[in-house]
Structures are given as structure tokens and as C-alpha cells.
Design a binder for these strands. Sequence first.
DNA 1: ATGCTATTGATATTCACTTTCAGCAGACAG
DNA 2: CTGTCTGCTGAAAGTGAATATCAATAGCAT
Lengths: 143, 143
Amino acid sequence: MKRAKQKIFQDYIAKQGLKSTRQRDIILDAFLSSDRHLSIEELYLKLRAKHPNIGYATVYRTLKLFADSGIAREIQFGDGQTRYEHVTEGEHHDHLVCTECGAIIEFENESIEKLQDEVAVAHGFLIKHHKLELYGLCAKCRP
Amino acid sequence: MKRAKQKIFQDYIAKQGLKSTRQRDIILDAFLSSDRHLSIEELYLKLRAKHPNIGYATVYRTLKLFADSGIAREIQFGDGQTRYEHVTEGEHHDHLVCTECGAIIEFENESIEKLQDEVAVAHGFLIKHHKLELYGLCAKCRP
DNA sequence: ATGCTATTGATATTCACTTTCAGCAGACAG
DNA sequence: CTGTCTGCTGAAAGTGAATATCAATAGCAT
């Protein structure tokens, strides 16, 4: 899994005539071996511990590259931070977001997707992507 | 409808010990008689035509007040601007967002809401609110 | 009308990116 | 291996939207 994504990224880099660098390898490794919903800041801080010389801008640009290459996707949960989540081919999921502890739970629901398609068709709309987030209290935080 | 919301807002103002001011009346009127998904900037510019002496900060603060009072709600469609939409008691809707022309279409779907509740229950999650947006091309913009 | 307190508008500040740029480092030809 | 070309990096400056500050002003109760 991790290997597969590294491969995808390397291929993307090569195809675009970009370069493979030490920083990109480090950031990719950190990204792939971490929680699935990191903000730039979080990844940057995490990296700084071991690699104090990697700059924020590099993390920022590299995450964008991940998104371009298809192994990551930007998401926003309305807390003012852009987060990046892992993307696995052929898989799509939505999120439950705990407003108390910040926990993010992923879920898939084929029936909802189908209904969304129906809504789109009814409005002559062509869906490119969607966003479904359920905000509330997770099992641990609910009263 | 418009009257009802004005009433709600006036009551809220009174209950909180806040003051009724000329600016708030003007901004409320402009908000209620406009498109349902305005950003602060848009409302500010719209107001400036007739009331060049109302400041951006006042529009910003007043929209927050609208949200607090329950007649408006903040929404974000990922274009970097916070928008405010009208809230009508007992009504909930989601959005189709055209990524080409920016059109925003509202829709309601009871079945989807029900499925969302099921997902939440299955995860022991207590939903407070949710967000469902379908991004793509509207009937006019699709090829 | 007076005094108390909320409100306003201009401005400054914050926040989270995003861009710039000079120096650096892959990659490839020779 | 070395040079060269071109992309990459890190620090710092720049952006744009949102939020905070503050002196002057304006509601509202007395």
C-alpha cells in the first residue's frame, strides 16, 4: 500500500520532468506513515523533530504535489486549516467529525451516493465530486 | 417571511441587551432582500452603493449577529470566502455548486438525511449538523 | 438633557497560506 | 567525474480574508 503510493508519486514526478529530492522522500514517508487527516502545520511540526532544516514552504508545496499526483486530497473541516488525506484508488469515503475532540471517522455509504446522483440528474447537474460531513459528538464525547 | 425574520432579529437584539441601530437595519434589509448566498465582501459592496459610510467591519459583525440570532448561517464552498445564507425555521437544505459559473442550487432530500442518521447511529455518533455539497457543472455549463 | 454602555468606522493585526528569489542540488551529457 | 542546465529549497516577504483595537459616536433609560 505504502509502496504502491510511493511508486505512483515517483512515476508522477518522472512524467512531469520534476526531480526526486531528499526532502520529498522524507515528506512522503512522513505523510504515508501518519494519521490520515493532517494539516500542513501538523505535518511540518512532526517533521521538524527529526528534520529541523525542512521548511514550511517545502512541506506546503510537496503536499500540493501529492494532491496533483493523486495520492492525496485536500479537505477542509471548517476549522480554518486545510488538511490532506490519503487517497486510495477506487475508494471514496465521507467523514464524521467530532466537534468536541476533533476525531475524524471515515465511512462509506453506497446508498447515499446513489441518492446524490439522483439529485444531480434531477437538476441536470453533472457531479465532479462531493463533500459530505456529519458534525457532532463521537461515541466518546457524547453525554 | 422577511417581516418574521426582522422580528426574530429585533427580539434577539432586545433580549441580549444590544441596541437597534440604523446600520443594523440597513444591513438586515439588504441581507433579507438579496440572493441567499452572499459573502461579507459582496454584501459590503452592494451596500456601499447606497450607504458609502458603512464600514466593512460593521457588515462583518452584523452578519455574525444574524447567525447568532438564528436568521442566517455561515457556509463555505471552498472558494476562500465565508458566505451567509438565510435560515428558515424547520427547513434544511443542501447545495449543488457549479464549479464553472459559481451558481448555487439548493435541494432537500429526506432519504439522504435518513441514511445519514443511520450512519451516525452505527458509529455511536450524535449528529449536530451536517454539510452536503455536490460540486460539478450545472445544466447551463455542462458540455 | 444626561450619563452609561453599546456601536461604529478606520485602521492595525492575525492567520493561513502563497509567492519570491538567491543559493543549492538532482540529472544528464560529455 | 565534471560541467551545465534547470528544478528545488528555505527564509522571508506578500496576500487576502477575517478579526481585534480604539477613539469617537449614538442608542436608550432615567
